[in-house]
Computed example of a mutant assay.
Amino acid sequence: MGRSYAEQLVHKQEHARGLLAAASDAGTTVWLPPVASPEAAFRNKAKMVVAGTVAEPTLGILDAAGRGVDLQGCGLYPPDLRAAFPAVARFVTRAAIEPYDVPARRGELKHVLVTQAPDGALMLRFVLRSQEAVTRIRKHLPSLLAELPALAVVSANILPEHKAVLEGDLEIPLTEQQTLTMDVDGVALHLRPRSFFQTNTVVTAALYRQAAQWVQASRPTSVWDLYCGVGGFALHLHAPHVVGVETSEEAVASAAATAGELGRAATFVAADATAWALAQPHAPDLVVVNPPRRGIGADLARWLETSGVERVVYSSCNAVSLARDLAAMPSLAVREVRLFDMFPQTTHYEVAALLERRAA
Rank of each mutant, 00 (worst) to 15 (best):
L148D: 06
M342R: 09
K139M: 13
S4N: 02
R311E: 14
L159H: 15
E167Q: 14
H236R: 04
A259T: 11
G2K: 00
V287E: 01
E310N: 02
A217C: 06
T346W: 03
M123P: 08
P103N: 02
Q178F: 07
L159D: 07
L128Q: 00
A121N: 08
G244A: 05
A156N: 04
P281K: 11
A84F: 12
R324T: 04
D70H: 13
G2M: 01
L71F: 10
F42R: 12
G260M: 12
R302H: 00
P173E: 02
D325P: 02
S24P: 04
V242I: 02
L141R: 03
A256E: 12
D285W: 00
V102F: 02
K139V: 11
S254V: 09
L113R: 07
L151Q: 13
E250I: 05
L339E: 08
V288P: 01
V54W: 07
T29S: 06
L166P: 08
H241M: 01
Y5A: 06
R17A: 13
L20I: 06
E167H: 14
E305V: 04
P173K: 00
V288S: 01
Q178K: 07
N318R: 11
V88R: 14
V320C: 10
V320W: 13
A64G: 06
E108N: 04
Q345T: 02
T181K: 08
A164W: 14
E249I: 10
P344I: 05
T347F: 10
R94Y: 04
A84Q: 12
T258N: 09
P344G: 03
G75S: 05
V54E: 09
L180K: 07
T267M: 06
D299Y: 07
P142L: 02
P193Y: 03
V245N: 11
L76I: 08
A359G: 11
D101K: 01
A146L: 01
E356C: 06
L76W: 14
A205R: 03
Q177T: 15
T179R: 13
D101R: 03
G168E: 03
L354M: 09
S37P: 03
A65V: 05
V154L: 12
D80V: 14
V153F: 08
H162Q: 06
L226M: 09
V112M: 13
P118D: 01
A319W: 12
F268E: 03
